[in-house]
Design a protein around this nucleic acid. Sequence first.
DNA 1: TATTGTTATACTCTATAACTATA
DNA 2: TATAGTTATAGAGTATAACAATA
Lengths: 161, 161
Amino acid sequence: MTEDRQSKPAAAGPLPEINTGALPKVIGYMLRLSQLLVYQAFQRAVNDETIRPPQFSILEIISCNPGVRPSDVAASIGVSRANLVPLLAELEKSGFLVRGSDRKDGRAQALHLTPAGEAQLTRLHEVVARLEDRLAEYLGPGGRETLLRLLHDLNTGAAKA
Amino acid sequence: MTEDRQSKPAAAGPLPEINTGALPKVIGYMLRLSQLLVYQAFQRAVNDETIRPPQFSILEIISCNPGVRPSDVAASIGVSRANLVPLLAELEKSGFLVRGSDRKDGRAQALHLTPAGEAQLTRLHEVVARLEDRLAEYLGPGGRETLLRLLHDLNTGAAKA
DNA sequence: TATTGTTATACTCTATAACTATA
DNA sequence: TATAGTTATAGAGTATAACAATA
């Protein structure tokens, strides 16, 4: 048995000996490193392989918009309608949501969370709140609010372009 | 021919009619939307399918660290050694880099950019600079610097945890 | 004609284990 | 025994085209 526990999960982050040149000044590069680390932290905190960030987002959006259509959920989280299908199917199979039918539009579905889905979402809110508080410690006083505002401005600006 | 140019490329961004609940206050959610938009903007600006953000990062790191080893490149951009292999092979095939051998370590390779690689990198620097300037407009005065500092603090903090 | 949910497909990305050759 | 580069593979994510039902 050679084991060889190599090929680490891409822990990311410039090594001290390596000169990353202009990359630390490139917004896209820094966004990628940050997202990688935050996603990994989310997975460790949630401790459930089947609940990844998109699943959390989907549950939140359905909870806040009872009867919402899959199309609008997809647009809200930046996933195509086609790729949302297996995600919804998995959440339905887990018993977290049900698909009703839209009275006004025979083509559309009306999504609702089950009590189990709401309970899962409540748990996720607690886990995420603790994680975000820990991240906020790294950002200094007011850092979290500033970061969220800047990302919001970036999103609304870039979306129009 | 039905065409049906649907399934938009996941343009992302909460629709005005949809309530995204607590998501706009979740750092990971906002990071994902931002990264999605910035990556798409990068692709449009570069206008070359074969040059994606990781390719740009790899060229930059080799240029700033002549003779660097693939292992260190992989760690710097948050990609596993195994997954770096096809990326390097593609860049080598495009004539942008060469793989020499490390004098001090027979196992390692020493990566160097070719003149064509340096030229491509110079072009990419110009494209990225224009893109970043446009993004900076959305962020307000000092916004870019603040965003980069916050992302840096987030990365260094989360990397230790 | 256009849209909603869906299927199918392809390609990228990511993760993991294991091999070889060097150390 | 440990590391560097590689191979292979499986899974997730993403992009695109097309279809049936409905509007």
